[in-house]
Design a protein around this nucleic acid. Structure first.
Lengths: 172, 172
DNA sequence: CGGAGATGCTTAACATGTTAAGTGAATGCG
DNA sequence: CGCATTCACTTAACATGTTAAGCATCTCCG
């Protein structure tokens, strides 16, 4: 371990290295980011061929699994923020991949569902998508993949309560 | 593709599930995305207080560790694409947090380094950032954290050759 | 009733992700 | 040399992430 003389900011040094933080390439956020990018890099070309972005694909998949959903529910399922979802739904609707109608009970809510065309598009993308996922599983190992997912889920649980309230040195 | 028989799925009928994919909320990309978001949610408020985005912070951290770097090298270290980095460097330079000058040997390259002000800003952010990281480590467990990072690194390695089939062989 | 507040969604504004094209400076090769 | 090619960025264009505001609609309570 490189030990370091405790001297935060010496007023005239050559400007760098006074703040001894962990090597940030090994920080958890970076690890997660790089891993995710390594995975998504496999899928993007195939999605792109079909004229879909990653997020549009997430929405179609979410909708295919449930008959219809409110926008807020869909946002939670596809893990998208409201504003992003709003824009994407507008575009997907213009492409006739989804359908939308306001609920009769509550005029504020709008119900979203996948269209016939949307289902067709999914059917054309799914095979190559599944093949890629299978190849990733084969390379990394099915058992290790399951372990990894479990650890990720537990990480989420560990931090679930933390984010709800405010944190160190909140506002000002 | 083969024409398909009358589609049983219509806009008003229940069930649009003829493509049986995995529950996508358990897909690897989603797991990684959610885990990363759970982590970043802890850091964003603190960074925001200091007027920094996550990416700007990555760049400052990278620069603090290495005197000076070319833009391309910095992009690799901070895991940012060229265009994003270009914009961010422009902004950070306008805020006097970094300095930039073109190399004499090769007029195409520009050397970037953190400024005195940048170092000061880092020093003001680092403590709370480290505290948050420590809390995350405490909650999840230091050992498990190390295991997780190792698995993520291995996942990266597993997929390294796959996505870059014709351009792999120039790394140290 | 009725208006204050909550709710569901959209727009706005700014920053980044992503791909493609542009620009000026080196390099290779005839 | 001459010049096409490569290289190191930068710009451009479009899509999403992120926060704050805006706008209807709905709920609740006096």
């Amino acid at each position: 371990m490189a030990k370091r003389p405790a001297d935060p900011i010496s007023a005239s040094a050559p400007a760098a290295r006074q703040v001894p933080m962990r090597d940030f390439s090994r920080s958890l956020p970076m690890s997660l980011l790089r891993a995710r990018e390594a995975v998504m890099r496999q899928f993007r070309p195939s999605l792109r061929e079909h004229g879909l972005t990653e997020q549009q694909w997430r929405i179609l998949r979410a909708l295919a699994a449930i008959e219809a959903a409110e926008v807020t529910e869909l946002a939670r399922t596809a893990f998208l923020l409201g504003p992003s979802l709003s824009r994407i739904l507008r575009d997907l609707e213009a492409r006739n991949l989804i359908e939308r109608r306001t609920a009769k009970a509550d005029q504020r809510r709008s119900m979203v569902s996948i269209s016939k065309e949307g289902v067709k598009l999914m059917a054309s993308v799914a095979p190559s998508s599944e093949a890629i996922y299978a190849e990733i599983t084969r390379r990394f190992g099915a058992r290790k993949l399951a372990e990894l997912q479990e650890m990720l889920a537990e990480l989420e649980r560990s931090l679930a309560e933390l984010g709800a309230s405010d944190e160190a040195s909140a506002e000002e």
